[in-house]
Amino acid sequence: MNTPWVHIGAQSILPSKNSRNTDKLKWAFTDETAYFGGTSLNISIAAGSVVGGVDFCPLYSTAVTANGSSIQVAYLLPERFPAEILEGEVVGVYYTSDATQKKLLPLPQGPRGGWKTTTFPRIITGPNERITELGIYYKHPPTPTSPGFKALTLGSLHISPISTIPERPSRITEVVSTSDTGGGSIKLGWKAYRRDFSPVMRKLRSVHGCFSEKTGDFASFLVWRGKELVGVSYCLEYDVPAGAAVGDWRVDGVTWGGAIVRGGGGK
């Protein structure tokens, strides 16, 4: 196994529902592509599925407020030979809530082979309803598919009744680099200043898991030297090892909901 990077702190929330051998639709991690980070999920069709039928691949048990929530998805429809593009197939997200058996949300098809994002309309339901299960469904075409046929690659899932992509997130200052005269390493430092105190931003920052006393609106930072990604930081500093090239440093913030905010350059 070739593992170019590891960061224990970068682990996201991984599926809590595991595929069984008898399932007709299964998930598996892939490190061949990702929307953000190093892994995404391949959703594939197993043997024994019924032509024209619908199969489900459960991923998570949740208890997110349903009413007013919207579901955002980053996904990739695998490239296929023209003969493999099947009329009538539908792949999408499903959820169940306290009152709903399974609600199906088909993903827009469009061109294949590239990452796409989509946001489904807000869910309108009773005030105490919660989304209890999340997963992927696949409606088979009238013609049979072969086992192992990949239906979808899933890059991210985001659900909230509040917009978690801030309209005006904190401002990231320019990066200041200081040399450690003893060891020859360089320490990069920056700040993230809140600048929007609107009711929407105040509400967002009050949501548990969407604000940090240490890093504010940002869950992590991407550290760039020119156009090269050097590493990831979970604080307002980054130690550059001794011997690294002098940099044209920049830091981008990654919000708790996965949005990327470009930061200032360095000096």
Partner: peptide
């Protein structure tokens, strides 16, 4: 249950990988 009462986000990152992707 996964996520909080008003927020759920995942990018399926496993803490290791062969590359690091940003917006695909």
């Amino acid at each position: 249950t996964c996520g909080g009462p008003e927020f759920f986000f995942t990018n399926f990152n496993r803490a290791l990988g062969k590359g690091w992707w940003v917006n695909g």
